[in-house]
Design a protein around this nucleic acid. Structure first.
Lengths: 295, 295
DNA sequence: CGGTCGATTGAGGTAACTCAAGTGCGGTGG
DNA sequence: CCACCGCACTTGAGTTACCTCAATCGACCG
């Protein structure tokens, strides 16, 4: 990620792009389509689209963000939700020292901005990790639409509920799992996410830094790096900078913890190390003496 | 909390009370009113009630749960939301070993059950920590109501958004804060919650065990106990079993960490210990050399 | 080709965990 | 009424998983 020509540091409130104004300012626009209809929206959100959404009556504007740009910042007045059409982002909370706490990594089909509904101001910041194409969903317009398309209204509840369940899973993970289990599950969920988007689930590039992963998982970047290296040693994955190859997704899925490093050796055979993996015993593949995933 | 005549262990699916059937079975009902109108609902949820909700057209059934009983269990088909009218509960996730992960402690005015919307099954379990009076909010009925009372629909989005922000705060706390800061903030939020409910914010009884607090905060029960004892020693609170007295809420609010125990002494004066508290420097009261809260 | 940033790896420290013993309270039954 | 028992809680001692600090290396970029 280059940060030379885009601001990586948080801009002052009001200094960021006022995307909701939707004026003639096209400085943040690039290639790509500029409007989507309701049907495309439903498909993107994986909502069963009934016939009633087949009209072209309602169109939703797209907007492009470059790497490092922000879709919204903390405290900015809320009026629109965002749906990721393409690209990768992170949402973060900022504490009083300017430290970032990563909350999520929205990607294709994800909705964000929901945290602004309650207080009428966004509670978090959404930063593009790559060039992004987002669909704007003005909240007022959406509410009105819900009155005529009830399945849309229900879909909104469903998506928000899904997000709530996801965060419950995060809380539960942060509260109960080891560093290794957190990183393993992170990789699994990324793999599944990429598969859904039509990419390879076996080989992909991380769009975020070790620091951002660590923040998301409640770990330091060093712990993330060490854990990835350990997974590599155990043959669970291959790592080369941002490039991750998934070698044993079942073990990653059920892993609780790796054997202590004192029990490992740089010179020990890969086979021997694999045999000492601690994960779920009733998983489908290999390795009989693995501990059960604790969540 | 007695567990002699109510099941403390998780019942088999279907074995629990089928509250949504709303049959003539009143075995779980006790004293208290049985119905609320829309206006009372809005007041409870702290939603601005417009004149249109003043009709007595729609009534919502109450249901009583005794300590240890469950309002819903994991996997149970979802059809109703719950609003706490009185009493205290916990919502938990259960892992494959039967370990509980506490997600929240719903109390008066709180809505729960929302996690069931997406998959049509509850994703968590809601257990009464005291005798409770809950209001049933059948989801279908609520959806229909939203069509005629738009402010109710908006309120639903708002409440769900609020819950999402709350969970973001939990994630952020679990990811970044020390054990002491977590316990301190837990006490502060409890104190504020009790104040909202009209109880004393300075002296209250915990409705949950140390184990449950620890699970909620991602700590062991021993750490919770030790931290409370330390707060007591520093004069921030008084502790006597479940009874908590808040002595210095400003310090609790901004506390980051306590001085290492090696710097403390059982024989040292309380004044000296207070002076070495680490918290936010620009707080309103006392203690100048405290570290700033990191979140 | 130096400068910056991200990633890796090592060494050492420590916050929080685990294990264990002991206390106090409330309920129950002799 | 009191002895007993179970459970929540407290407290201590020892362990460890993860953090902190620091050095190094490579990739990217002007």
């Amino acid at each position: 990620m280059t940060s030379s020509n885009v601001p990586e540091t948080r801009p002052e409130p009001g200094n960021n792009l006022n995307i909701s104004a939707a004026t003639g300012d096209t400085s943040w626009q690039r290639q790509g389509k500029l409007w989507s209809n309701l049907k495309e929206l439903c498909e993107l959100l994986r909502i069963p689209a009934t016939s009633s959404v087949n009209d072209e009556e309602f169109l939703f504007q797209h907007v492009q963000f470059k790497t490092g740009q922000r879709a919204h910042t903390i405290g900015q007045p809320f009026d629109t939700l965002f749906i990721v059409h393409s690209g990768f982002l992170k949402t973060v909370l900022i504490d009083e020292f300017g430290n970032e706490q990563v909350l999520s990594f929205p990607m294709k089909g994800d909705l964000f901005g929901v945290d602004g509904i309650h207080t009428k101001r966004y509670a978090s910041e959404a930063v593009a990790l790559s060039n992004c194409d987002l669909i704007l969903l003005p909240f007022k317009k959406f509410i009105a639409l819900g009155r005529t398309h009830s399945e849309l209204e229900h879909a909104m509840y469903s998506v928000m509920s899904r997000e709530l369940v996801r965060e419950q899973g995060m809380v539960s993970m942060l509260g109960a799992l080891s560093a290794e289990a957190r990183v393993a599950r992170f990789l699994v969920s990324l793999s599944e996410r990429f598969a859904e988007m039509g990419y390879s689930s076996k080989l992909f590039n991380l769009r975020m830094t070790r620091h951002e992963i660590g923040s998301y998982l409640g770990l330091t970047l060093e712990t993330v790096s060490r854990t990835l290296s350990a997974f590599n040693e155990f043959g669970l994955i291959t790592v080369d900078q941002r490039s991750i190859g998934i070698k044993d997704i079942d073990s990653l899925r059920t892993l609780r913890r790796l054997p202590p490093s004192s029990a490992r050796s740089k010179k020990a055979s890969k086979k021997a190390r694999e045999a000492s993996l601690i994960r779920n015993g009733n998983a489908s593949s290999g390795n009989s003496d693995l501990q059960i995933a604790s969540l």
